[in-house]
Write a protein that binds this DNA or RNA. Structure first.
Length: 271
DNA sequence: ATGATCTCCTGAGCGC
DNA sequence: TGCGCTCAGGAGATCA
């Protein structure tokens, strides 16, 4: 569910509130996520102060005062929300963290595809297996062109969604980026021109920036750290619009499946 | 190296 | 109202 703009929105909202707070209690109610929460998770968090909060790709990274990192990945349906002390428990509240100001940070995840762990700071790269962040200045036409030659036989859509190369893009935003860049999802990466790579890099920045400015896309589950919805779903040009008219040329938006994921594009606007 | 397929789960939406 | 089916923003494993 949450891709880079949603995770960024959560981090921007919660960071100023969480920075400096001490964790006074951790209640793991359901450790059975796709990767189980480690038995010592609560012990490694309790008593720690949150030094800062950041994001890499779709990972939330909370720096702890003992040098460790509290890693959060939201999977498809994960939510991290800050609530009042008296907040009542809801279904799928798997972890409840009490802070020194009395407020509670809750991890809720119906499908349990997310991940929570406390890791050593120097293990972050290995644990996230993540490439450059999609908003990094390192995402240039040259970078994309080089990677497209290295993975020449895959589709451009697969390449953009490969977290080991570019971290943060998921199915919604890749569909939107490809539309903006005028590139069809099934194009072979190795046949992208340098100009197309430049358009993809520029489209990535503009789409992600616009999505962050609107608090991300709330299709059904996503809410930010204060349970607010985003509004960027209203700006989607192609995602989930199969059969509807292209907002640019009026032609039909096509729906298909690429590497197992629902895919949307305009055959006239994308080549 | 890569795509297809399956898997982990629950819930929403749809046709009947 | 309810049943059964399909699909969903992620990502890792297996197989060809």
């Amino acid at each position: 569910m949450p891709e880079l703009p949603e995770v960024e929105t959560i981090v921007r909202g919660l960071e100023p509130v969480l920075r400096g707070r001490r964790i006074v209690a951790v209640d793991v109610r359901e450790p059975r996520l796709r990767t189980a929460i480690a038995p010592d998770f609560a012990a490694r968090l309790t008593g720690r102060r949150i030094a800062g909060m950041s994001r890499h790709g779709k990972f939330i990274l909370l720096a702890l005062d003992h040098g460790g990192i509290w890693l959060v990945h939201l999977g498809m349906t994960g939510r991290v929300t800050l609530g009042a002390p008296e907040r009542t428990a809801r279904p799928h509240d798997h972890v409840v963290v009490r802070l020194d100001d009395g407020r509670v940070l809750t991890y809720n995840d119906p499908r349990r595809f997310g991940r929570l762990a406390v890791i050593a700071a120097d293990a972050t790269a290995a644990e996230t297996a993540a490439g450059i962040d999609a908003l990094s200045p390192a995402l240039t036409a040259d970078f994309l062109h080089a990677r497209s030659r290295r993975h020449g036989r895959t589709t451009v859509k697969s390449l953009l969604m490969d977290q080991r190369e570019i971290a943060g893009l998921g199915n919604i935003y890749v569909n939107e980026i490809l539309f903006r860049a005028g590139v069809r999802p099934r194009r072979r990466a190795g046949r992208l021109t340098r100009a197309e790579c430049a358009r993809l890099a520029a489209a990535t920045r503009s789409i992600l920036g616009a999505a962050i400015a609107r608090g991300g896309s709330s299709i059904s589950d996503y809410r930010d750290g204060f349970e607010r919805s985003g509004s960027y779903q209203r700006r989607h040009q192609v995602y989930d619009r199969a059969g509807e008219p292209c907002r640019r040329c009026g032609g039909p938006v096509r729906g298909c499946v690429v590497t197992g994921r629902s895919t949307f594009y305009c055959a006239r606007c994308q080549r």
